[in-house]
Amino acid sequence: MQEQNFNELAGRIEGLARVVRCLVATLEDEQLIDGSRYGESLRRDGQPHQGDGVMLVRARKVLRDIADQLETARNLRQ
């Protein structure tokens, strides 16, 4: 993949991740979701499984990272 295409893809993915984090924070603040429970769900889905291909290994790590970021943001808001 050319560097320009990679940067475009990475930027789009980062933008989507930021949208998700912002949306979850808003829903938490409005007490429409339990952010801790949602984070735990992300962590469960993010656990590696034997036989995962390269893409799933990376995707599961991203889920765990987002759960960590949401937890950090929640702690800062409190």
Score class of each variant (00 low, 15 high):
residue 1 M to N: 08
residue 4 Q to H: 02
residue 5 N to K: 15
residue 8 E to N: 11
residue 8 E to G: 06
residue 8 E to C: 07
residue 9 L to W: 11
residue 9 L to E: 09
residue 10 A to S: 09
residue 10 A to M: 07
residue 12 R to E: 09
residue 15 G to H: 09
residue 15 G to N: 13
residue 16 L to R: 11
residue 18 R to M: 10
residue 19 V to Y: 04
residue 19 V to S: 03
residue 20 V to T: 11
residue 21 R to Q: 12
residue 24 V to W: 00
residue 25 A to R: 13
residue 25 A to V: 01
residue 27 L to P: 03
residue 30 E to W: 08
residue 30 E to H: 12
residue 30 E to Q: 14
residue 31 Q to C: 09
residue 33 I to A: 04
residue 33 I to E: 02
residue 35 G to H: 04
residue 35 G to T: 11
residue 38 Y to H: 07
residue 40 E to A: 15
residue 42 L to G: 03
residue 43 R to D: 02
residue 44 R to I: 06
residue 44 R to K: 06
residue 45 D to G: 12
residue 47 Q to G: 04
residue 48 P to T: 15
residue 49 H to P: 00
residue 49 H to F: 03
residue 51 G to M: 02
residue 52 D to K: 10
residue 53 G to C: 07
residue 55 M to C: 05
residue 57 V to H: 03
residue 59 A to N: 05
residue 62 V to Q: 10
residue 63 L to N: 06
residue 63 L to P: 01
residue 65 D to H: 10
residue 65 D to Q: 11
residue 66 I to K: 01
residue 66 I to D: 00
residue 67 A to Q: 04
residue 68 D to H: 10
residue 71 E to Y: 01
residue 71 E to A: 13
residue 72 T to Y: 03
residue 74 R to C: 00
residue 74 R to M: 02
residue 76 L to N: 14
residue 76 L to E: 15
residue 76 L to P: 00
residue 77 R to H: 05
residue 77 R to K: 10
residue 78 Q to Y: 06
